[in-house]
Design a protein around this nucleic acid. Structure first.
Length: 559
RNA sequence: UGGGCCGUCGCCAAGUGGUCAGGCACCAGGUUUUGAUCCUGGCAUUCGUUGGUUCGAGUCCAGCCGGCCCAGCCA
């Protein structure tokens, strides 16, 4: 397509290098990956990076990628999230080999835990959470052994079974791995494997009152599925020794390996499910799919294409370096894709009426406008014209600088596809506000060029007043004013009060489809737009997906 | 001397001892009935730093500096 599109087939990274080596050495004959979200929130742009990595590798190496729900904490999880996650992954264009829940493995996981107990490598601890915390030590001081650490296998077996059989209250006991309370790695100081939680699970219902923790569950789930490369983010690096310890001490059907990469950080955005949840529940946005949210569902509603997101992930790469991507990268990827595909139309968001005084009052005519300037396959549509039209208020300036190529008293501009017009008079209301413009047109300039070949520097968009369709247009801007809102003591302070500006009086040319989130339009000179969910011909609502690049704004700013 | 990880252009990122790819951003031109798109050119004598090994170091070694992560019965 164009310069900024990355070709995933030749984009390599250190993880693909590892896979290449494993294939070359014969360690693996086939590659299996997994994308393991916890269904406790909606997927966001950060997850997209992981999805593209895991599913992209499976696709490129002819292997499989599973969509596995890491659902070991029933208190926070729900089927609403499960469904949204499935939908988002599919919408991005990826296909999973299987779609299991970690909770599907609870029986097997319990068996593995029993195995550890029998080997004397796990024990039931009856300390309170506070006692455990106190005995864990600190980052610099080793922990001390639990008084229950040397319980016999028989007693541990009896207690663990009793935990499972609902004989204890929440928090009374936990199952812990018996590793090393002196370890410099806190994760190895006898980590908890199972806790008691009397909570209904979205998948297993009330079958269990004990639930395994992430560290115990994850590697074993990988092993059960035959995952070869278990890819996760950097904060799990310290967990790898535990991941390995569990697999090294149990007989599993396969031996997966964990590799960590840096999570995505994007300027002006939040990628913490907890904080996104607060935006939703706090009413700061219109749900998880608010077009300002960088959730996959929000981006979809905003008008992002899956291709633009996947391409963005290819552009940013995969490394172990903490980094923050500039918004411009995402915006460029979006514009690139939308520029290639969007259907061109004219719409006026902030209308100013123009009366063409020498155009006959009862006359109408129709111009042909290309649906895409670089792609004739898109065809053309008819654009009606008449004596009264609307133009953008920003396209008129009374005291215009020389570099302003638009309408101004005495100046001539081209109406796209139509005629040259010259501004003759400015009409005002009692308050002195500009109400309308009186212009004349040059009948010789029909179609947008004149026989004398005179140059008209500016071309502006317009909509015939008589034929216009009224609509509401939502202008979205970044949700936060700070490049790193997550770093603020309270991210609410960084909320952008102008992240949504509603334009209730927009005028659209008639050839615009008014309903549901389907067709990506470019409203010429304004940006890319898409109809919002629930938009109807009675009440059309459009979301601005992205502005066009605006070099005039840059000139204007620099004076 | 708690452990783990990271440091190549403003932001990303290739580079696997032979003399710093590419993208974004930015700047300067050209085309243009979207100040869009597109096209052309410019943009790291230098790889956190110091020293060492080598004919040769971003790549190997040592020290130092800076940043990130870890003390949930969260993931």
């Amino acid at each position: 397509m164009s310069h900024s599109s990355a070709d995933s087939s030749d984009s390599s990274n250190f993880i693909r290098d590892i896979i290449d080596a494993d294939l070359a050495s014969g360690k693996h004959a086939r590659i299996v990956t997994r994308f393991p979200p916890e269904p406790n929130g909606y997927l966001h742009i950060g997850h997209a990076k992981s999805i593209c990595l895991n599913f992209g590798i499976a696709r490129d190496y002819g292997g499989d990628c599973n969509l596995r729900f890491d659902d070991t904490n029933p208190e926070k999880e729900s089927v609403e999230y499960v469904n949204s996650i499935r939908r988002d992954v599919e919408w991005l264009g990826f296909h999973w080999h299987s779609n299991p829940f970690a909770s599907d493995y609870f029986d097997q996981l319990y068996g593995y835990a029993v195995d550890l107990v029998k080997q004397g490598k796990a024990y039931v601890d009856s300390q309170s959470a506070d006692e455990m915390r106190a005995n864990r030590g600190t980052l610099k001081q080793p922990g001390v052994d639990s008084p229950n650490r040397n319980r016999g296998v028989e007693e541990n077996m009896r207690l663990f079974e009793a935990m499972k059989n609902d004989e204890f209250a929440d928090g009374e006991h936990v199952l812990r791995a018996k590793i090393d309370m002196q370890s410099p790695n806190i994760n190895m100081r006898d980590p908890v494997l199972y806790r008691i939680r009397h909570v209904t699970h979205h998948n297993t219902g009330d079958k269990w009152c004990i639930y395994p923790l992430y560290d115990f569950t994850h590697g074993l789930s990988d092993a059960i599925e035959g995952v070869t490369h278990s890819l996760c983010t950097l904060e799990f690096e310290d967990h790898r020794p535990l991941y390995d310890w569990i697999l090294d001490n149990l007989e599993t059907p396969s031996r997966p390996e964990q590799t960590e990469f840096a999570r995505l950080q994007l300027e002006y955005s939040l990628t913490s499910k907890r904080k996104l949840n607060q935006l939703v529940t706090g009413g700061h946005v219109d749900g998880w799919d608010d077009p300002r949210m960088l959730t996959i569902s929000g981006m979809r509603r905003r008008g992002f294409t899956p291709e633009s997101i996947v391409n963005f992930c290819d552009m940013i790469g995969v490394t172990k370096k903490d980094s923050t991507i500039e918004m411009g990268v995402l915006e460029t990827s979006l514009r690139d894709n939308l520029n290639a595909r969007a259907v061109r139309r004219m719409a006026v968001i902030n209308p100013l009426k123009v009366i063409i005084e020498n155009y006959p009052e009862d006359q109408e005519e129709v111009f042909s406008g290309a649906n895409h300037p670089q792609n004739p396959d898109y065809g053309t549509r008819e654009v009606p014209f008449s004596r009264e039209i609307y133009i953008e208020r920003e396209d008129f300036m009374e005291d215009a600088p020389r570099k302003f190529f638009r309408l101004s008293p005495g100046r001539e501009v081209r109406l796209r596809f139509a005629y040259y017009i010259t501004c003759k008079e400015v009409l005002r209301d009692e308050a002195g506000e500009i109400e309308a413009l009186v212009c004349t047109y040059d009948p010789q300039s029909r179609g947008g060029s004149s026989p004398d070949g005179r140059k008209v520097k500016g071309t502006i968009h317009w909509v015939s007043a008589h034929h216009a369709v009224s609509a509401t247009v939502n202008l979205y801007d970044r949700l936060f004013t700070s490049t790193n809102p997550g770093a603020a003591a309270d991210f609410h302070q960084a909320l952008n009060p102008e992240s949504l500006v509603v334009m209730p009086e927009a005028k659209l040319e008639p050839a615009i489809e008014l309903t549901d989130n389907a067709i990506a339009y470019q409203f010429e000179r304004l940006g890319y737009f898409i109809s919002d969910y629930g938009s109807t011909s009675d009440n059309p609502v459009f979301n601005r997906t992205m502005t066009l690049r605006d070099s005039w704004a840059k000139i204007e700013k620099s004076g």
